[in-house]
Design a protein around this nucleic acid. Structure first.
Length: 220
DNA sequence: ACCCAGGGTCATA
DNA sequence: TATGACCATGGG
């Protein structure tokens, strides 16, 4: 069985077991973008409470974030950790959004090299850029994170230290270029790691049990 | 007390 | 290009 087929089969198993995830948990595309920065190297719960604090203070908008002193912003997002750095990153993101003519314009006419533009913004690396492209803008990109590397290297389908772009292409070429599929697949990988197999991404009791260690035939 | 969580930047070799 | 230090909170 080809690697591509296995990627699809794993999606089916995860999807059947965990069901629809309806990611990203946010009310607006801009909230997705803010969340993508705040969740960097941080538990979602901590990022989420920081967003809640911004909302309560009515500060969850590009203009508010740009106008507020960076020190005040840092205090608001304190619970997300790395708050001094992330405050600067949020303002850099909002400045870029402003220069682009706002979130709505980006949604209406997404330019060809939008990904490159995002990567040029301070604080936005490959994963954050793809979070924004997929979950805020609906672009079909496959997100590579630590969970993805851990799960698929344990399954023997990847080397965990392969470059980000290499892994992204492997997933994107194995699957349909469908934002809906990529959306659900990445959410499933995260939920699987968080809820089902906390220590071992493939344990003896989870829905992927048996797919590694050369016993693909019995399950797939 | 230690480790990790839905990363990225910067300095150094 | 490839490591390593650094950023920092909250929950296990």
């Amino acid at each position: 069985m080809s690697r591509d087929t296995r990627f699809k089969r794993i999606y089916q198993l995860l999807d059947t077991h965990h069901g629809p995830q309806n990611w990203w948990p946010a009310d607006t595309p801009f909230e997705v973008m803010v969340g993508a920065v705040l969740v960097q190297n941080t538990a979602w719960k901590n990022a989420s409470s920081a967003i809640a604090r911004l909302k309560e203070a009515d500060l969850l908008s590009p203009k508010a974030i740009l106008q507020m002193p960076v020190e005040k912003l840092a205090l608001c997002i304190r619970s997300s950790g790395h708050f001094n750095v992330k405050a600067k990153r949020l303002q850099a993101l909002c400045l870029w959004l402003d220069q682009q003519g706002g979130v709505d314009r980006i949604i209406r006419q997404s330019s060809a090299d939008l990904r490159e533009d995002l990567l040029a913004v301070y604080g936005i690396g490959p994963e954050t850029a793809d979070d924004i492209l997929l979950y805020a803008l609906g672009e079909p990109v496959f997100i590579i994170d630590a969970y993805t590397r851990r799960l698929f290297s344990r399954l023997g389908l990847l080397q965990s230290d392969e470059p980000y772009e290499v892994l992204r292409k492997k997933f994107e070429s194995a699957l349909q270029m469908d934002a809906g599929i990529f959306n659900q697949y990445h959410a499933l990988i995260v939920v699987h790691a968080k809820n089902t197999c906390k220590k071992q991404p493939v344990c003896s009791e989870c829905c992927l049990a048996g797919v590694c260690d050369g016993v693909w035939k019995s399950i797939l």
